[in-house]
Design a protein around this nucleic acid. Structure first.
Lengths: 231, 231
DNA sequence: CGCACGCCTTGATTTACATCAAACTTCCGA
DNA sequence: TCGGAAGTTTGATGTAAATCAAGGCGTGCG
């Protein structure tokens, strides 16, 4: 069946499953289900129990929580090839975030029985899973550090630098991975503040903003730009 | 040898290793080393590579980072029976925090070879390790939520409620697990602000503060106390 | 074409919390 | 016992970023 083959290939192409044997991929494919979401659709609410996790095939999913006052904080934006929900699956506790499609999306849902079987079979897979969670943990620690001891300008700069990756060439063209108010929330600031910061960085000649496209004019200067200089 | 037996029993008493077989415990004990720290001593700096992780036997270790401006943010306070460094070990990347003893402490250092052997031997152990990391992850997510969408008063209240646990009886005696400026940093606020918040909660009759001892007078009222009422 | 709805920007004002500064406790070591 | 450093409290002031409030600007739809 064409569909199963597709799922198998998809799974095999993910970093996490890269080194799994064919038979194990087949096992995973057997327990995997496809899920389609249209833009804006909620996948599951905060508090849900999962007995599996999701891999994004196409589109974009946001993980977020909302306060009693109706405010919303984006924890993470998950794109193709990335996964989410593993921790909740292993923990067997309610999920601390809700998840919503930012665009029409296709996901795979992989039931835990498949993962547990793979762990039992192949302890190298277990190690990779552990390393994967560890990296997630590290990212969260980085976020906490960011929010705790860096100004909003510094957070925006850090975000831009991370988007830029580590290119040799100086002027880099970036495309924002989501609308500005989503980015703002991800960075723990209001859309107004993000707008002002981008404006101010533009004025200083460090970047140029055109809609969702941002050109970084000088990586070096951006890196050492500590905070707003007085005019 | 008495020492080895001690280490074995110690390890066997930890939740993580609870269900391991004797032979595996022995293996772990063989690669475990004891570490003693006196109060204030740095265990390792931010950026260190670990090829093992630590279990606190006695005392208290703080995990923290410091900003270029010399400010310091406490990420976590680790006490007896708890562990840290697993994620860094699995990831094989520099540790994002530095670690310092808050009191004279005794730790065990467990080299990764022991853990990897246990994972290879016993996939249930691998699962428990995965669940352990997942819980850590969840805690961090909770912190991010806290910092992002709750006021400082709410964070203090949440902290007190967590310390209190879930007792039936209403007036609860708490002992702060560290000095107030450490607690303040853990909650992402200054000692001054923490002091003022505790004062204000006292004035409202919700708690009574006596040095490092805090009596929660009404759990129910504390829970629904949204924020500072105007006088 | 135009107009209307999201999305973003810009400006004025507010505010929660940090910072600075000084007194007051606590506790430990000489 | 005393002295002093570290921890904590209290008050006065400062400020980064949020909030409130309009006003542009694309972009898709009638």
């Amino acid at each position: 069946m064409g569909k199963q083959i597709d799922i198998g290939r998809l799974l095999a192409s993910l970093p996490l499953f890269q080194q799994l044997h064919e038979s194990e991929i087949a096992n995973l494919a057997a327990v995997a289900r496809e899920v389609s979401l249209s833009k804006g659709q909620i996948l599951f609410q905060k508090g849900t129990l999962l007995d599996g996790f999701y891999v994004v095939v196409r589109g974009q999913i946001k993980l977020a929580f909302s306060s009693p006052q109706g405010h919303e904080k984006v924890l993470s934006i998950v794109g193709p090839g990335q996964s989410f929900g593993e921790a909740v699956m292993f923990m067997e506790k309610p999920c601390p975030v809700f998840t919503q499609a930012l665009a029409d999306s296709r996901l795979l849902y992989i039931a835990k029985q498949g993962i547990f079987a793979a762990i039992d079979h192949d302890s190298a897979f277990a190690r990779r899973m552990l390393a994967g969670l560890s990296i997630r943990l590290r990212g969260l620690i980085h976020d906490v550090e960011d929010y705790s001891l860096r100004s909003s300008t510094q957070r925006v700069i850090g975000f831009l630098l991370q988007l830029a990756g580590t290119p040799a060439s100086d002027p880099v063209e970036l495309e924002l991975p989501a609308s500005k108010h989503i980015i703002a929330s991800r960075l723990n600031l209001t859309p107004e503040t993000l707008s002002r910061i981008l404006h101010s960085l533009s004025e200083s000649g460090l970047i140029a903003v055109k809609g969702k496209y941002i050109a970084v004019l000088s990586l070096a200067r951006l890196r050492q730009f500590d905070d707003l200089p007085k005019p």
